[in-house]
């Protein structure tokens, strides 16, 4: 039943994503593409945070590394199709290099180490002007071609991004069902038990972190080609924290958590534009309240309702059993 409803939900959502842009103006299509890019980035973070239970607050650094890799390579005359794997590879290696010292000590240390790494990466983007253009950034980043088809138009690029997101979503789904994915969740739920069962904790945490970084790098590459102009601003610590909030708000460890979370983080601010200065204040307060009421994120609502219904049914059954027993007892004493 649950599996069926998940399949129905997924196909309806996919259909909506395929049809939706035809009813939207070009800014709407742009915003949808923007949303997809952040879903992709948040999916990687969900692997690190939600499934493997590591606290990473430097995701925007990898997002930025991916974006700058593609931008710099395309400016140097290389194709997007060379830049994309290069971005992924560089993010993977950087993820391993950063994760190695930080994962020596678990939990919250990783959060601050990655936060610091993000600051350092941001400083490099801002200061190394000969490569990154400093605060002026890099402009006129071209959009790629696919099998001779130009992806210049907003609609074409939207479908391209949708395709990449779905492919990476399926890869993640496969990974989570594989023994690796099981090892990741074992690690999150009880690291010491996982270790005694022969899971190499160090390697698997490192791997979950680096794979998460690859997703951010690919998202960053798509981002650079989408906005066609990058400067250090969207890759700062604030963005990392926003991505982390996306995962947690959507529901860490829920496969579709990032979809909901990215909508809250990217699409909602557009709707709430009229609130302007108030927006972030309201957003921050809403995060606090959400944590108090729904500590497992928005997608935990169905589970919660189910748990409540089950406990109500159980207590009703118990009450019925008690009355039945009482009636039996009454009968017994009457006889």
């Amino acid at each position: 039943m649950k599996k069926q409803s998940a399949i129905i939900f997924t196909s309806v959502a996919l259909l909506a994503l395929l049809v939706a842009p035809h009813f939207l103006k070009s800014y709407g299509v742009y915003l949808l593409t923007y949303w997809l890019v952040f879903i992709l980035a948040a999916m990687g973070l969900n692997l690190t945070v939600g499934y493997a239970g590591q606290k990473s607050l430097g995701h925007a650094a990898f997002f930025g590394i991916g974006a700058y890799t593609v931008a710099i390579m395309m400016k140097a005359g290389f194709s997007f199709w060379l830049g994309l794997p290069a971005a992924a590879a560089i993010c993977f290696v950087t993820g391993i290099l950063v994760g190695f010292p930080a994962l020596r000590v678990q939990t919250i240390y990783l959060a601050f180490a990655t936060l610091g790494f993000n600051t350092a990466a941001w400083l490099v983007m801002r200061n190394e002007e000969q490569y990154t253009g400093g605060t002026f950034g890099i402009n006129n980043i071209a959009r790629p071609e696919l099998f001779g088809l130009s992806l210049d138009g907003a609609l074409a690029y939207y479908y391209f991004t949708l395709g990449v997101t779905i492919v990476f979503g399926l890869l993640l789904f496969g990974l989570l069902r594989s023994p690796w994915g099981k090892a990741f969740t074992a690690l999150r739920d009880n690291p010491i038990r996982a270790e005694s069962l022969g899971v190499d904790v160090r390697n698997y945490t490192l791997l979950s972190f680096a794979i998460g970084a690859v997703y951010a790098g690919v998202a960053g590459a798509l981002f650079a080609s989408l906005v066609q102009f990058i400067d250090p601003a969207p890759f700062g610590v604030g963005q990392s924290i926003m991505m982390y909030l996306m995962v947690v708000i959507g529901g860490p460890g829920y496969f579709f958590g990032p979809v909901v979370g990215a909508a809250v983080g990217v699409v909602l601010p557009e709707w709430l534009r009229f609130a302007q200065d108030w927006y972030l204040f309201v957003f921050g307060s809403a995060v606090v309240l959400l944590m108090i009421w729904l500590p497992d994120g928005l997608l935990s609502i169905p589970d919660r309702i189910r748990a409540r219904r089950e406990s109500r049914e159980a207590s009703a059954a118990r009450a019925a059993a008690v009355t039945a027993a009482a009636a039996n007892a009454g009968k017994g004493s009457g006889a």
């Binding site: 939990t107 909030l245 972030l280």
Partner: peptide, 23 residues
């Protein structure tokens, strides 16, 4: 619930405080 929830709530709190004062 654990540390992650407290971390996220205090992040939210810091955003709210900072932007509340900014108003």
């Amino acid at each position: 619930y654990g540390m992650m929830q407290i971390v996220v709530a205090t992040i939210g709190l810091s955003i709210a405080m900072r932007n509340g004062v900014r108003l």
